[in-house]
């Protein structure tokens, strides 16, 4: 689906004018709107490095057999969520919390950063990419739910997100109960926008193909709030900290898991163990602080569920 790509390219043009008008409206000095680069930030906590294990061997895992044959690991991720799963359009480097989780797991499987190939996979194609072996596992705001568990297996949750609201600083919207008559934006067909449509909020839904469009419209004042998982919202808030903020009052539970080949329990166990060890040794917290934590909202490590 290259609609997204074209959309992204066209957005770049629109965004330029949009951020320019946004500056004028808010009256803030132009310097403050410069997005802080995702990842590699010096002010926030530094990213941790992960010790790469050697001599890892898994038996009875189709996924592992493929990884071993390829001599490298392929991980499906997202590319359009700042501080979560984001690809720098210029350097092509991926960064964000989900990327760090992906690296942690890879390190415990014996693969350093130089042996990881990241692949951007859209939400709609996740299940097919995992089932078809295009990726060895998937880390990208992938909520564990029963319908998906019919098609893929999960390791985790490694993070629990919740649907929240992103608003302009100083907005009259203080909670989900203030949404009556307000324009609320999210991704087309997303669970979040369904909840807004079907719930008792009385909001006017606006649906775009990319969250970045919603955020652009929020900054320009065309919509009043953006809604989706707080993890995604935090990433945007961290990018424009002077203009927008996350309310911090989640009203759903979205446990994120690492998606992998259905029924590959040996591999699932290995990923779970990897998550556990990095949560215990402090890497998880360091990674969070260096990415989503920049938005100023803290988060707790959820208990792992081995039955996922």
């Amino acid at each position: 689906m290259n609609l997204r790509k074209t959309a992204a390219a066209a957005f770049a043009v629109v965004a330029l004018t949009a951020s320019a008008t946004a500056c004028g409206k808010s009256g803030s000095p132009s310097g403050s709107t410069t997005p802080s680069a995702a990842g590699g930030s010096s002010a926030a906590a530094a990213l941790p490095t992960y010790a790469v294990k050697t001599g890892v061997k898994l038996s009875g895992s189709k996924t592992w057999d493929r990884i071993e044959k390829n001599g490298k690991i392929t991980i499906g991720v997202k590319a359009d969520q700042p501080n979560l799963g984001f690809q720098d359009p210029a350097t092509k480097k991926y960064s964000g919390f989900d990327i760090e989780i992906a690296k942690m797991v890879a390190a415990d499987l014996g693969f350093g950063e130089d042996k990881i190939t990241f692949k951007t996979i859209q939400s709609a194609n996740r299940e097919t990419a995992i089932a078809g072996g295009q990726v060895d596992y998937y880390v990208g705001t992938y909520t564990i739910n029963p319908e998906r568990q019919k098609q893929v297996s999960f390791a985790g949750p490694y993070f629990v997100a919740g649907q929240d609201l992103l608003v302009k600083k100083g907005s009259s919207i203080k909670s989900k109960d203030d949404l009556k008559g307000k324009k609320v934006c999210s991704a087309t067909g997303s669970t979040s926008i369904q909840r807004i449509k079907n719930g008792p909020y009385g909001a006017k839904p606006v649906e775009y193909d990319a969250y970045s469009l919603c955020v652009d419209n929020l900054i320009s004042g065309q919509v009043d709030a953006v809604t989706t998982d707080d993890a995604i919202l935090k990433g945007f808030a961290a990018k424009y900290p002077d203009q927008i903020q996350v309310l911090g009052k989640p009203f759903s539970e979205e446990p994120y898991g690492v998606g992998l080949l259905k029924g590959d329990t040996a591999f699932q166990d290995a990923v779970t163990a990897a998550l556990k060890s990095h949560e215990d040794n402090g890497d998880w917290k360091k990674a969070y602080d260096a990415t989503l934590g920049k938005s100023g909202v803290t988060a707790a490590i959820p208990p792992l569920d081995s039955s996922s």
């Binding site: 019919k150 991704a187 067909g189 193909d209």
Partner: peptide, 17 residues
């Protein structure tokens, strides 16, 4: 672009898994 039609159905349903 926020108009509900067949392709939004696809997105909604694949989001639901």
């Amino acid at each position: 672009f926020s108009v509900f039609e067949l392709f939004s159905v696809q997105k909604t349903l694949s989001e639901q898994g």
